[in-house]
Amino acid sequence: MSKVTMYYKTTCPYCMRAEKLLKERGVTDLEKINIETNREARAEMIERSSGRTTVPQIFINGIHVGGCDDIHALDAEGKLVSMLSA
């Protein structure tokens, strides 16, 4: 299974929706980084995601795949499971 990292905020409904999809697709080891309380993590997220400031921001094996809508689109195209299996 791939290494999946998600930058998130605790009250973000998009973060919860993205996490739910990832778990439904078999992700059991999700590294979650809360940017609400950690300014360095927020700055790191913005840098790693080429300037995106919204959450969630999701990385699979270090590759930025985007936010909630992006991973749902990947799933609809049938690409998410193969990325997670790589």
Rank of each mutant, 00 (worst) to 15 (best):
A41G: 07
D70P: 00
D75N: 12
A76E: 12
A76C: 02
H72Y: 13
R39L: 15
G78N: 09
E31W: 03
R48H: 05
V81S: 13
S82T: 13
L84H: 05
R39G: 13
I71C: 02
D29L: 09
I46Q: 11
T28H: 06
V81E: 14
S82N: 11
V81L: 15
E44L: 14
E77L: 13
T54N: 07
L74S: 01
H72L: 06
S50Y: 07
M83I: 07
E77G: 03
G51V: 09
Q57S: 04
E36G: 13
E44S: 12
A43N: 12
G62N: 06
I35G: 10
M45V: 12
E44V: 03
K79H: 06
G67D: 03
C68F: 04
I46F: 05
K79P: 02
A43F: 05
E40V: 14
V55N: 04
T28W: 01
I71V: 11
N34I: 08
L80Q: 08
T53V: 15
G62F: 02
G67I: 01
F59N: 02
S50E: 12
L84Q: 06
D75G: 00
D75W: 00
A76G: 05
N38F: 05
I35H: 11
N38M: 10
R39M: 14
E77R: 13
L80P: 06
I35L: 11
F59W: 09
L80H: 08
I71D: 00
E40P: 03
G62S: 03
R39W: 04
S50L: 10
S82E: 14
I71E: 06
I33Q: 01
M45Q: 10
D29N: 15
N34W: 06
G78Y: 08
S49E: 02
A76T: 11
I35D: 10
E47H: 11
G66L: 05
V81D: 12
Q57M: 09
T53R: 14
A86N: 15
K79C: 01
M45P: 09
E31N: 14
S82A: 14
L84G: 03
F59R: 08
F59I: 10
T37A: 11
S82L: 11
G66S: 00
F59A: 07
G67C: 02
L84V: 06
I60Q: 04
R52E: 13
A86K: 14
A76V: 08
G62E: 07
S85F: 08
Q57G: 01
S50G: 04
C68I: 07
N34T: 07
M83D: 03
D29C: 03
